[in-house]
């Protein structure tokens, strides 16, 4: 009984984070802001729902598979988000107008500065 109530609570928390991510995906102005919103589906939404299924069925075949899916998504979703955001920054997707700082762009410029036109010709 207590496990049933606890799994329902975890399920509602996961669905709430899915709702927040969809709201951010529709309304936020920038690729990086949208990525910040949608990564919560992987880490909190999917993990919460799969943990709720594990709490409902216990350690049967379905519960162990749900735990496997939850741990896999928990590991791989931030890695995929990091790679796509780095690729977007190097691809040249700009930040939105309201953003105030760009640490990664400054670090890239300091590490390998873009050569000027006249130095290339010499």
């Amino acid at each position: 009984m207590i496990l049933d109530i606890l799994s329902n609570i975890v399920l509602v928390i996961g669905l709430f984070f899915v709702f927040l991510a969809m709201l951010g995906l529709a309304r936020l102005p920038d690729v990086y802001n949208r990525l910040h919103a949608t990564t919560k589906i992987g880490t909190l939404g999917a993990f919460g729902v799969m943990l709720s299924i594990l709490l409902k069925v216990g350690f049967s075949a379905m519960g162990v598979k749900a735990l496997t899916v939850a741990l896999f998504i928990l590991v791989t979703s931030p890695v995929a988000a990091h790679m796509i955001s780095r690729a977007a920054h190097r691809h040249g997707v700009g930040l939105c107008k309201e953003s105030v700082i760009d640490e990664y762009g400054k670090a890239c410029d300091a590490a390998c500065p873009v050569p000027k036109e006249d130095t290339i010709q010499e």
Partner: peptide
């Protein structure tokens, strides 16, 4: 990247 993020979600 917008489309990729949306498809991933």
């Amino acid at each position: 990247p917008d489309r990729v993020v949306a498809l991933d979600a």
